[in-house]
Amino acid sequence: MTKKVVLVVEYNGSAYKGWQAQKFGVPSVQENLEKALAVIANHPVKVICAGRTDSGVHASAQVVHFETNVERSERAWTLGVNTYLPVDISVVAARHVSENFHARFSALSRRYRYVIYQSELRPAILAKGVTWTYKKLDAEVMKEAAKVFVGTHDFSSFRAIGCQANTPIRTILHFDVQQLGQYIVLDVRANAFLHHMIRNFAGVLMSIGAGEKTVSWSKEVLDAKDRCKGGITAPSDGLYFVDAQYPDIFNIPVCKLGPHFLPYVEEPSYDLSS
């Protein structure tokens, strides 16, 4: 009898050309995870994730599911699988779920955090885990500028030229900007995202935070519906997939919001099931 298992996976994406398995010799998170799962399952495994991440992008709580016809404990799907994974990928939770669960199509929302590190000198520790800027950024100004992104909009100005999505319309459910010591964190939840969307948000907001552009520029870029008007695409180093929300009926494991080096901040809960 076929069973469905959900995993929550953490990874440092610096060494990988993104989540998705590609041609032979191109390192991906998916390929490494599927190989490790196949050892424990003793059969080939295909995994499906909540949201594919690009080259160099990280995750603290990527949600995936797969099907298997073998009996294994949840401990086997975590500790056992981790034995066969490289040190920069780790399964942090596992649970057996109903057959109608789908990591991608059952998701109500996805959430990312973009972490900017401000310092006159570049960091060595976390060099590929944060986006470094020597410029002094005003987080409150960035927060004000980000308010225009909340809601349902045409985000053509923030999609990559090669984006293959059928429509540029997306709904931003939550967009916060917080200063946590030397970090500025962009925290964004949406129903779905376009290719490079958050990195393009970051490029616009960093220019505004540095005083190079006014607060009103974020709305001007949004209204233009033209990627050429949107400024730079910020680096992938500071981007983390941190959460996917599902209906409570599926009982998907919930992990502490990452990335884990950030101070814990109490936050409101979001009920998107209605």
Rank of each mutant, 00 (worst) to 15 (best):
K3F: 00
V6K: 11
L7F: 11
V8T: 15
Y11F: 09
Y11S: 03
N12V: 04
N12P: 05
A15V: 15
G18P: 15
Q22F: 06
F24Q: 12
S28N: 15
E31A: 07
K35Q: 10
L37C: 07
L37F: 05
A38N: 01
A41T: 10
P44D: 06
T53W: 03
T53H: 10
Q62L: 10
H65P: 10
H65M: 08
H65Y: 06
T68H: 00
E74R: 13
A76V: 12
T78L: 04
V81T: 10
P86Q: 01
D88T: 13
D88W: 07
A93I: 01
F101C: 01
F101E: 02
F105L: 09
A107T: 09
L108F: 06
L108C: 06
R110N: 06
R111T: 09
R113Y: 07
R113W: 05
I116Y: 03
L121I: 15
I125K: 01
V130A: 02
W132F: 08
T133E: 00
D138I: 03
D138V: 00
V141Y: 00
M142E: 08
M142F: 02
E144P: 04
A146D: 13
V150I: 15
T152E: 15
H153D: 14
G162F: 14
T167N: 14
P168Y: 02
I169P: 02
R170M: 07
T171F: 00
L173Q: 12
H174I: 05
D176V: 10
V177S: 09
Q179I: 04
L180T: 15
L186E: 11
D187C: 15
L194E: 09
M197G: 08
N200R: 07
V204P: 03
V204F: 02
L205N: 12
G209W: 00
A210L: 13
K213H: 09
T214F: 11
S218D: 11
V221F: 07
D226A: 06
C228S: 14
A234W: 04
A234T: 02
P235V: 00
G238C: 01
F241K: 09
V242S: 12
D243H: 07
Y246L: 03
I249V: 15
N251F: 13
C255Y: 12
L257Q: 14
G258D: 12
F261H: 10
L262H: 13
P263T: 13
P263I: 09
P268A: 05
L272Y: 07
S273N: 14
